[in-house]
């Protein structure tokens, strides 16, 4: 019995050491910028009630205004966050919205609606720590309707 406990303690000790060591592996977080003149919410004439949904559910990964809570500084979580934010911004960066040409805007609106409809976005691991990003069915519907409507207006040149 005592022997088993000693092994367990040893294991715990080494896990702790590993945990401390990995904290020294740098995870370079994509930078945050609050000055985004081309921002989606700022330039696409959102009603506030819809804007807040996008801000809560999408902006941490798809904008330059990522909020990094304390646990995102702790490896290995930090590595995952860095990957998601980098990948997310690369696919769609809402901070750059107004610099996209119109055909690209139409594509982004269409895909965002698809992702929200299918429930693929927000990306699920994110939801564990972000209860505000858990969208209800009704909220999804509001977002999708807004996106579709915007797309139609943009396409017809209104």
């Amino acid at each position: 019995m005592a022997k088993k406990r000693r092994i367990l303690l040893k294991l715990l000790f080494w896990i702790l050491v590993l945990f401390v060591v990995i904290q020294f592996i740098p995870a370079k977080k994509p930078p945050v910028s609050e000055q985004n003149p081309n921002d989606f919410i700022r330039t696409a004439h959102f009603p506030d009630s819809v804007a807040v949904l996008f801000k809560n559910a999408c902006y941490d990964c798809h904008s330059n205004q990522t909020v990094y809570p304390w646990y995102t500084y702790v490896a290995p979580v930090s590595w995952l966050i860095v990957r998601d934010v980098k990948d997310g911004r690369k696919h769609v960066n809402f901070s750059e919205w107004n610099s996209f040409k119109i055909t690209k805007k139409l594509k982004v609106l269409d895909k965002a609606a698809d992702e929200i409809k299918s429930g693929d976005m927000p990306f699920w691991p994110f939801l564990i720590m972000h209860p505000k990003a858990r969208l209800t069915k009704k909220e999804r519907k509001i977002m999708v309707e807004w996106l579709d409507n915007k797309g139609e207006k943009m396409f017809s040149g209104e």
């Binding site: 055909t103 690209k104 139409l106 594509k107 269409d110 895909k111 797309g151 139609e152 396409f155």
Partner: peptide, 11 residues
């Protein structure tokens, strides 16, 4: 529809 066509082509 042309709208969807634009989306796919841009994609």
């Amino acid at each position: 529809h042309h709208h969807k066509m634009v989306v796919k082509l841009q994609d």
